[in-house]
C-alpha cells in the first residue's frame, strides 16, 4: 500500500493549494516574459540579457524555479502513487515507486542547482 511519507507536505489541503498557487506563479512568469517579447519586437540580445539580469527578474525567475520544483514533485508523486503501486506491480510496486521517486528527486535537485547557477 502506498504511504504519505514521501508526500510534499503530508497534508492533502496544503499540496492542493500549493499546486494551484505554483501554477499561478508559473503562468504569471510565462505571461511576463511573453509580454516583454511582444512589447519589444526588435529585441537585441543585449536588451534581453539586461532584462533577464535585472534584480526583479532574477528574483521572479528564482521564485518560478522553486514553483516548478514544488509543482513537479507534487504531480510526479501523485503519478507514482497512482501507477507504480502494488495493484499494478504486486510486490515490486514499492520498489519501482521508490526508484522512480529517487530519480525524480535527483532530477529536481540537478534542475534547481543548474537553474540557480544560470539565474545568479
Amino acid at each position: 500500500m502506498v504511504v504519505n511519507v514521501s508526500n510534499f507536505s503530508r497534508n492533502g489541503l496544503s499540496d492542493f493549494l500549493l499546486q494551484r498557487l505554483t501554477a499561478v506563479v508559473i503562468a504569471a512568469y510565462v505571461l511576463c516574459v511573453l509580454g516583454f517579447l511582444w512589447l519589444n519586437p526588435g529585441l537585441t540580445f543585449v536588451e534581453w540579457i539586461s532584462y533577464m539580469e535585472s534584480i526583479y527578474m532574477r528574483i521572479f525567475s528564482t521564485l518560478t524555479l522553486f514553483s516548478i520544483t514544488a509543482h513537479a514533485w507534487i504531480g510526479m508523486w501523485t503519478v507514482s502513487t497512482d501507477y507504480l503501486n502494488e495493484h499494478h506491480f504486486r510486490s515490486f510496486g514499492h520498489v519501482f515507486r521508490w526508484f522512480f521517486q529517487l530519480f525524480v528527486t535527483v532530477a529536481i535537485v540537478i534542475y534547481v542547482l543548474l537553474g540557480l547557477w544560470v539565474i545568479w
Binding site: N4, N7, R10, N11, G12, L13, F16
Partner: peptide
C-alpha cells in the same frame, strides 16, 4: 478526517 493526500484530494 478527510484532510490527507488521498481521501478526497486523489
Amino acid at each position: 478526517q478527510l484532510d490527507d493526500p488521498f481521501s478526497v484530494f486523489r
